[in-house]
Amino acid sequence: MYIDIRHISKAFNGQSALNDINFGVQEGKLTALLGPSGCGKTTLLRVLAGLETAGSGQVAIAGRIVDDIKPQERGIGFVFQNYALFRYLNVYDNVAFGLKTKHWPAAKIKARVQELLDLTGLSDLAQRYPDQLSGGQKQRVAFVRAIAPNPKVLFLDEPFAALDSQIRQELRIWLKNLIHQVGITSIFVTHDHEEAIETADEIVVMNQGQIQQVGTPLEIYYQPQNEFVANFIGHSSLLKNPDLNGYDLPKTACQVQIRPEHVHIHKLSKKVTSFGQSATVKAVQFKGLTTNVALDIQGQKLLAYWDAGATPLGIGEQVQITIERLVVFQNNQSQILKAQNTAQRQIQVL
């Protein structure tokens, strides 16, 4: 593993902030630390960078244990949430800063800065000062400044949090491409599950100072290991001890996660016989591409989608639903179940 994190724990004033964190990052991969605010993800990133010290545990970067190495000598780049561009230096000098501290020869500094500014389309802004840049431009400069000295790893703390949604979307793709182009091993912190899923090669989900799950975006999305991950990533419904047709669910206490895209709603008016489940429409919210539907099933709330072009659903309307796939959580174990019989998944239209 290129970045190796072993048994990292840290406490602030007796309050545990990080609790036995273990994971590794492969070379060249972009990893997301994902979790709600206060879960310890930024603290962990700062420990990796050497800006905070861990209570116990070990961090290795590129095969070297860095616990006693100062941040200056760890060979890292760090992008701060507020970018922290030096206000009294222009874009060029900001980017050159990390090269000057390493005493690169002037000609090499010039070539490197120019190369990076060209690569990122910032050449025209070289003489501008940070206060003259837009949020998106500052973000790019902060990124370029961090990678200029060829660090072994790049850490980004909520790199898109301060941007508005459209620019955020654009910069996510930009950053992902550039990181892969440069080939730098990176870890970024985010509280936004969509951002993590869209951008990262691998996601580390954290809550209350502990790792909940490590996996690719697909694994995290489709195979959540516990209720927290299921709830935090994407939209879904968690049902307690439901009785669902076509599923052999445990009789003892369990939780069932169902994603809205796996719920199919069928109108009764279409004259169908079905192997499905009765449900009542509780709320309908038009979202453009789809319509979000809140259903009542056995007294519990279940989210589903409805085709925006189809005959609208009325509130209070009785419908039939079939569920394609779900995840059962019981005794800290998770299990993926698919409808037992394909015939039960499909509705027979008479």
């Binding site: 941040p71 701060f80 922290a84 030096f86 009294y88 990390g98 390493k102 400044r145 000295p149």
Partner: peptide, 27 residues
């Protein structure tokens, strides 16, 4: 003074002396 300025300079390899001269002093 935002502490992240100093941290940014640290991660870019600057020693305290340089951080004072280039980052804090101009502020």
């Amino acid at each position: 003074l935002d502490e992240t300025y100093q941290e940014a300079a640290l991660t870019l390899g600057a020693k305290p002396n340089l951080i004072f001269r280039k980052v804090i002093f101009p502020e």
